[in-house]
């Protein structure tokens, strides 16, 4: 085959690819990129929501980096990620891995794990708040008390409140992760397992040598999407803390909540978008690093 022929095939394929992409790319430009671009400009201005905005250069950024609350919420945001990601992925993989082998009432058990993901955050946050109450009301403290363990303050503590708010987020997202893991596990052709079984390889080796490597695209997807999810945590904090403020004493407040407050409570669009830009850059950086580290090919 001559060089020119390959070129033509390649070009033809590229043309097809762009033909498939043109409508979606236009869509993304209009609905996502353009508003984002507008936001980046707003972060350099100040003024009322209506009417002219004054250009203030980097003032909003200077203010942000000098604000101790910003650094506090920035740190919280990473705590959510650092605890939430490993915990949720470990549990969901274990559930999916064993659920995949269970035949009896498989669909029913799977549904049990998925139900939390189906229910609205507002309703569930309310229920969780009662679970965290002291005895005689709170379920968790009742269990601790029955086991002879000391009572815990949970949401009313500087140290325990963040994990306590995170728990329902992990709980709600578990069904999502399990389903993706199951879909990934099932995309692995049976032939690999059959070959391994014929070779008499043990289950542990199969897990490490076959299942996990072949699950890499799924794993990469879940790591990236879950990371973004934990770094953008909002619903649980908004619905479980007093006034939706991420207390006590900002112990649970994540960046997105701070952004929401700046925009819709304080009406400071410039300051809100400046924080959004930081969130955007951080998320993008983390994602690119994860994609590099876990490159599927």
């Amino acid at each position: 085959m001559s060089f020119r022929d390959t070129m033509t095939v390649g070009q033809k394929r590229a043309a097809t690819a762009w033909m498939f992409l043109i409508v979606p790319v236009l869509f993304f430009v209009v609905v996502r990129f353009w508003p984002t671009f507008q936001s980046s400009w707003i972060s350099l201005t100040e003024g009322p929501m209506m009417g002219p905005r004054d250009f203030v250069g980097l003032d909003n950024y200077v203010r942000m980096f000098g604000d101790p609350v910003f650094w506090k919420v920035f740190g919280n945001t990473f705590k959510y990620l650092a605890i939430g990601l490993p915990v949720s992925l470990t549990i969901s993989f274990a559930v999916a891995y064993y659920l995949d082998r269970v035949r009896f009432m498989h669909g029913f058990i799977r549904a049990l794990y998925f139900v939390p993901y189906l229910t609205t955050a507002v309703a569930m946050a309310w229920v969780w708040r009662w679970f965290y109450e002291p005895v005689p009301i709170g379920l968790f403290n009742q269990i601790l008390s029955a086991m002879g363990l000391p009572q815990q303050p949970f949401l009313r503590s500087m140290t325990q409140s963040l994990p306590s708010v995170l728990a329902p987020a992990v709980w709600a997202g578990l069904g999502f992760q399990v389903i993706i893991f199951l879909a990934g596990l099932r995309a692995i052709p049976d032939t690999y397992y059959e070959a391994a079984r014929i070779d008499g390889v043990g289950p542990w080796t199969i897990l490490w040598e076959i299942t996990l490597p072949l699950l890499k695209p799924t794993l990469l997807f879940l790591i990236v999407v879950s990371s973004i999810g934990f770094l953008r945590i909002f619903d649980q904090v908004y619905n479980m803390t007093v006034d939706g403020q991420g207390g006590p004493l900002n112990a649970t407040r994540p960046l997105v909540l701070n952004i929401y407050n700046s925009a819709f409570v304080d009406y400071e669009m410039g300051y809100a978008t400046a924080q959004t830009m930081v969130l955007f850059v951080v998320l993008l950086a983390i994602t690119v690093v994860q994609l590099r580290l876990l490159r599927s090919e």
């Binding site: 979606p24 993304f28 990129f33 984002t36 936001s39 953008r232 997105v256 952004i259 669009m269 959004t276």
Partner: peptide, 16 residues
């Protein structure tokens, strides 16, 4: 670029 659209919170896009 498409992936990066996951990173802007909806809260910031609703006004535009």
């Amino acid at each position: 670029a498409i992936l990066s659209t996951l990173m802007i919170p909806t809260e910031m896009l609703v006004i535009p």
